[in-house]
């Protein structure tokens, strides 16, 4: 038996994904230790979101494996992986727009706990779910908006709901796909504060373009280019890496 504390929360080995001749993930190896704060950076079109989709099971890999705390989950569906503790947020909001913020979070919690299997008992009797949801909304500072429909919220606050739903899953591994994307910088600090205050035992992988955020948040950085890992290391190592600079500032991989 391996020491569980030494076991990676998430271990990705030799992951490949081809769409016909197009290779969108090339032999990706990556491990997140429990409590990791890992940033995934790379130019647009590098395959960052595809990589997240491969981890969550939204896309099946062509080859390679994904392990969650030692368990091979490569063959599991997206929902099964989510039930085991992989949560993600989306670059473009994926919310339950027609219902209240509170219900968005309740739903995520109730699907995790299995409450949603109950079809004869009023949802209002699930006090544990409701209390947890209220507590969670407090953590992400959405209490004032609890009873507002998501579609009535300004975009920045919708981004918080996006994170709150993922946190409702009580994740072991959390994948944040550009959490502050599209939010005016005056408001983005609220989101980044929430990201900073995530529980220490959650392994977090964040995709982010804003280098200030990356260097503030991440302990490790992986640079993805054209579907493959260019390099990985500590923020200092990445900052000093000529190749990374070239990718971001040089000619071929603009914008």
């Amino acid at each position: 038996m391996q020491d569980p504390s030494a076991m990676p929360a998430l271990q990705i080995t030799g992951l490949n994904k081809n769409f016909g001749a197009l290779q969108v993930a090339r032999d990706i190896n990556l491990a997140l230790r429990p409590g990791a704060r890992h940033a995934l950076i790379g130019p647009n079109g590098a395959g960052k979101t595809t990589f997240v989709n491969l981890i969550t099971g939204a896309l099946p890999p062509t080859s390679g494996s994904v392990k969650l705390y030692g368990e091979d989950i490569t063959g599991l569906t997206q929902a099964q992986r989510a039930q085991r503790g992989i949560a993600r947020t989306f670059q473009i909001n994926q919310l339950f727009r027609g219902v209240s913020v509170l219900e968005n979070v309740c739903l995520s919690i109730a699907e995790r706990t299995g409450d949603c299997n109950a079809l004869w008992r009023p949802a209002g009797t699930g006090r544990a779910v409701i209390d947890e949801a209220v507590h969670l909304l407090d953590r992400v500072r959405l209490t004032e908006d609890a009873l507002k429909k998501v579609s009535e919220l300004p975009y920045g606050r919708q981004r918080l709901v996006e994170i709150a739903i993922a946190l409702g899953q009580d994740p072991k591994v959390l994948l944040l796909d550009e959490p502050a994307a599209g939010v005016p910088s005056a408001e983005s600090h609220i989101i980044l504060d929430v990201v900073d205050s995530l529980a220490e035992d959650i392994a977090v992988l964040i995709i982010e373009h804003d280098m200030d955020v990356v260097f503030r948040f991440a302990k490790e950085i992986t640079v993805l280019v054209s579907g493959g890992i260019l390099t990985a290391g500590t923020p200092d190592e990445i900052a000093a890496d000529e190749r990374v600079r070239e990718v971001y500032l040089g000619g071929s991989h603009h914008g």
Partner: peptide, 19 residues
């Protein structure tokens, strides 16, 4: 019921329900 809330979730955003 909570099941009914899940149905509404499926109606509103089936992709997120999978997730």
């Amino acid at each position: 019921s909570p099941f009914g809330q899940a149905l509404v979730g499926i109606r509103e955003n089936v992709g997120r329900m999978h997730a």
